[in-house]
Design a protein around this nucleic acid. Sequence first.
RNA 1: CCGGAGGUGGCAGAGUAGUCAAUUGCACCAGACUGUAAAUCUGGCGGGUUUUCCCUACGAAGGUGCGAAUCCUUCCCUCCGGA
Length: 338
Amino acid sequence: MSLSKLLCILGSTSTGKTDVALKLAGKFNGELVSCDSRQVYKGLDIGTGKLPGEKVSIKKGKGFWEMGGVKVWMYDVAESKKEYSVYDYVKDANKVIEDIAKRGKLPIIVGGTGLYLKALVEGLPNLAIPINLKLRKQLGSLTLLKLQKKFQKVSPDRWEKMNNSDRQNPRRLIRAIEVTMSNHEGDPSSPALPAPQDDNLGLEIIPKLSNVNVLKVGLTAPREVLYQRIDERVVSRIKEGVIEEAESLHKKGLSFKRMEQLGLEYGILSEYLQGNILRTEELVKILQGKIHGYARRQETWFKKEKDVYWFDITKEGWFKQVEKKVCTWYYLKNDQTN
RNA sequence: CCGGAGGUGGCAGAGUAGUCAAUUGCACCAGACUGUAAAUCUGGCGGGUUUUCCCUACGAAGGUGCGAAUCCUUCCCUCCGGA
């Protein structure tokens, strides 16, 4: 792969990642690659914050959006009715990144979805084990207790290693069973194979980004500031027409059930459109609270992310420092690892 | 001014004499997370250096009682109806 450098801008929602990425793209000849589990869907625009905070011209090209002359990829790559998972994301994003690099541009990943970012940059061992719809449907009707029993039976050793929170998480249990069953080659009664710690099944299909010089720039703000920004953004998005956006998505055939799966704005908006929330004042409050929680979850995930250069966006001169950091990294020869 | 309803922890809202520091939801705090990740799940959430321990708490002040958020009295306040 001709790829050599990769810039990641990460951080929780409403820290202004896209704006920063756009500016850096202008300076360092880059193109953006969105790493967001919801921006991949067509039609979810206002609610997922596809549009930058600062005013720039927007054109839609083939497979990308163009903002102020900068290409932005991985928007609108999936239909909102269909499920699109990390697996799809890693596959598609890899192609996009490779293509950007081939054209001699700097790929800039703009990420709010920690799992996707991790999968893309570091790889995810079990990614190649596909979803087994039949099995999921079957397991989906079981109670928590039955799921636990089933998993204990199918893979006692992995059960032992599982933490308490995951043991009570039906979704995780189902996937764990799915992974184990696939290792047993569909026969749960056959002897268990070693836990797929390091299997590289997926690596042939999904190349991990190896030998790449990655710079991770993280954006943060104190809680109160973050919450305030979120609160303001909720209000302005309603003005921009998220409600109408959700409404038209539903008219075009997106079921309320599916909207709920999409979470946050769309999940709550679907409640609103169904009349379960009456006043928009209340809608705003609920949205704000939910997004605070989301931001918190993102923070706890990103806290563990290694080698991140963090910048507090409330500190004087933070952007200059970001630029400086990126600049020295960008012009550094690749063999002089930093 | 009269009649009716009511004042519970940040909010909403249970409890209506002992098992209540007080169900629950939200918010908030901390955390997990190898294919739904804006998802899903776990723990905490009056104060006191761990505590089967103490203190302060259910509008305020008194009272009854072994014991009150829960009963009685007065007061303050809120809401609805009548004037």
